[in-house]
């Protein structure tokens, strides 16, 4: 269909506007990338105002440094990966196990349980009581302290419950007529039909673990169990490349590490890119899952 003149003008402005918007979004990332791969004296000569790299000066020294053999960054990566993979899987299982029964209108006590869940959304335990509970359960300085107290997010559980409730009941009844039990129905019927919401919730939980910062500071006492975010923050604030190497590796430290500004920027890229890469893969589920959660009461 041929566009009118007004529509064409609108489209042109729209495209320009979106390009500018995209550039604004991408500029900080580009800036960080550039600083991470350019030598310090070049950055310095440009008074830290270099947005795009100059190809002939590109160096990957800072990346080689942060991913060196005994790098603390890799260790923080592995801790974070454990939390994201194991924590998210457990979160999803428990959230489903609670959401599924509560999606049944004929479940006795359903309203009371929902009210109880809802109250936890309004009133939190507070930092000190929560800390005392985690301490009493022996979870201080354990990675499980970051998983178990947040096993089920009430908000995500309600979204999932609404999604389950919207599934065609006839399908579930047909399965029941064929002799399927509740576990079979949940696993063979509900889960395959709920991929969008499961993918979305997994993303939410996963990003939550990836970005977890405060919980790590409060419940974890050993730097060897620090996740990526506290580690990243420490590198940026302390401005010391020494943090990237195991303590005691004095000889390594004396090998003239790359300039700290480069190392810091490389660390930011290393901490940001992996989680960004996940988004495109779950995008098709993400929109659907969020929409369902947001428009159904």
């Amino acid at each position: 269909m041929k566009m009118t003149r007004g529509e064409r003008i609108f489209s042109v402005f729209n495209i320009i506007f979106m390009c500018v918007l995209n550039f604004i979004m991408l500029a900080p990332m580009l800036y960080v990338l550039t600083l991470s791969i350019m030598p310090e004296h070049i950055i310095s000569q440009h008074n830290h105002e270099l947005l795009l790299p100059i190809p002939k000066y590109i160096t990957l020294e800072s990346y080689r440094y942060i991913f060196a053999g005994n790098s603390q960054l890799i260790h923080a990566y592995s801790v974070t990966a454990f939390l994201v993979i194991v924590g998210t899987a457990i979160n999803i299982v428990f959230t489903m196990l609670m959401a599924y029964p509560l999606s049944k209108t004929d479940l006795k006590g359903r309203t009371a349980v929902m009210l109880y869940v809802f109250i936890t959304m309004l009133i939190g335990g507070g930092l000190i009581p929560t800390y005392l509970v985690v301490k009493a359960t022996g979870l201080i300085d354990s990675l499980w302290a970051l998983i178990i107290p947040n096993l089920i997010s009430p908000w995500y559980m309600i979204i999932m419950r609404n999604f389950f409730a919207a599934l065609p009941q006839e399908l579930l009844e047909a399965a029941m007529m064929d002799g399927a039990g509740e576990f079979t129905i949940l696993w063979r019927i509900v889960v395959p039909l709920s991929i969008p919401v499961i993918a979305t919730m997994s993303l939410f939980y996963g990003v939550g673990y990836w970005n977890n910062f405060f919980g790590v500071l409060i419940y974890i006492n050993s730097p060897s169990k620090w996740t990526l975010q506290p580690f990243l923050r420490q590198v940026l604030i302390e401005a010391s490349p020494r943090l990237l190497q195991e303590s005691g590796a004095l000889q390594e430290m004396l090998k003239a590490p790359p300039p700290m500004e480069q190392v810091k920027m490389a660390t930011i890229m290393a901490a940001t890119v992996p989680i960004l890469v996940i988004y495109p893969f779950v995008q098709k589920y993400f929109v659907k899952g969020v929409m369902i959660g947001s428009v159904k009461g």
């Binding site: 428990f94 959230t95 196990l97 609670m98 959401a99 599924y100 029964p101 509560l102 049944k104 479940l107 006795k108 006590g109 359903r110 349980v113 109880y116 869940v117 936890t120 929560t130 509970v133 985690v134 359960t137 979870l139 178990i148 107290p149 096993l151 089920i152 009430p154 559980m157 029941m176 039990g181 509740e182 576990f183």
Partner: peptide, 19 residues
């Protein structure tokens, strides 16, 4: 089925208060 639903619901509620 009812038993399962009750058990699952209560276990979820329990998990929320696990700590």
């Amino acid at each position: 089925r009812r038993s399962f639903l009750k058990a699952a619901g209560l276990s979820g509620a329990g998990a929320i208060l696990a700590s």
